[in-house]
Design a protein around this nucleic acid. Structure first.
Lengths: 158, 158
DNA sequence: TTACGTGCAAAGGTTTTGCACTAGC
DNA sequence: GCTAGTGCAAAACCTTTGCACGTAA
């Protein structure tokens, strides 16, 4: 979970004003955990749940919040940027993108630190961040397509 | 290295015609190994080295070649798609993206197979492909910024 | 009060598409 | 000769920007 107080503190530290529009954008993300919202989706959600807001303001809010490291920008190659809470300190994760239904699931961070150390040592490249996406078939779609080929357990996957 | 004969075979199998335009697009990639070209760059390269070609044709060729798994599409979040030869079978690799100068280097594939097995076992998600990008500072930029903080050797990194 | 934020509309950049013409096979 | 491919221009998208007005601090 992301603490709202820490978000407001980051805004203050950045000498940025806490406007109703920015609060609502933040609230949308707080109320949609685990989703990866595009600007247009945030715009629609704010408008339908709360009040009218300009699309340009949404774009500017998303950029501001990303600069303040409150949000993280991700791309799933569907032609638009998507955003989620930056959970760097609490819950780093990768993404499992189903190429059939488009669903995006998360997978807990794992075993990339040793690789980053090696990259620094071998190549002099200082890793600041990484992004790992797996493209494939989620359990549901694999089932529908009759492509189950591994030790798939019967718990729900998405 | 990618074999042109296998590319032409893939075109045939897909019942696609081998036009001069498609040959030239392929040739551009063959002559620029290790680069990650955008549609606009391919367009300029074909025009300056060979002959006039429509930008729309470049886009359509890139899509076709990607569908045939001759090329792979990647995004470095600079607002345009980029392409490289699909080296899935011979030389899988990750990308090191310098956030300062924009240079993109490659890093040999490593240690993701066990993780993919675990994802299938734990989540029933069948990984077909993955994409791992490291964002950070390349050796040159880290040096310029005085941020060398690790065992950086004195060989050239990019 | 005043600098920062918003809304609207226009512009910018990338990619797609409609259509008439051309050319592989 | 048929059908797929090309070129051009227009359109479709997503995103950014200029400017007048509004408002948080």
């Amino acid at each position: 979970m992301v603490h709202l107080s820490s978000i407001y503190r980051k805004l203050e530290e950045g000498a940025k004003r806490l406007t109703p529009q920015r609060e609502l954008v933040i609230r949308i993300f707080a109320e949609h955990p685990g989703e990866h919202l595009s600007a247009e989706e945030v715009h629609q959600l704010v408008k339908s749940h709360f009040q009218d807001i300009g699309l340009a303001t949404v774009y500017r809010s998303l950029e501001l919040l990303t600069d303040l490291e409150i949000l993280t920008r991700i791309s799933f190659d569907d032609g638009r940027a998507r955003y989620e809470f930056n959970q760097e300190e609490t819950h780093r994760h990768h993404h499992l993108v189903c190429v059939h239904c488009g669903h995006v699931d998360e997978y807990a961070e794992d075993l990339l630190d040793p690789l980053e150390d090696r990259i620094l040592y071998e190549r002099g490249f200082q890793v600041l961040d990484h992004e790992l996406k797996f493209y494939g078939l989620c359990r549901n779609c694999a089932g529908k397509l009759g492509k189950t080929g591994g030790p798939v357990r019967e718990t729900r996957g998405d």
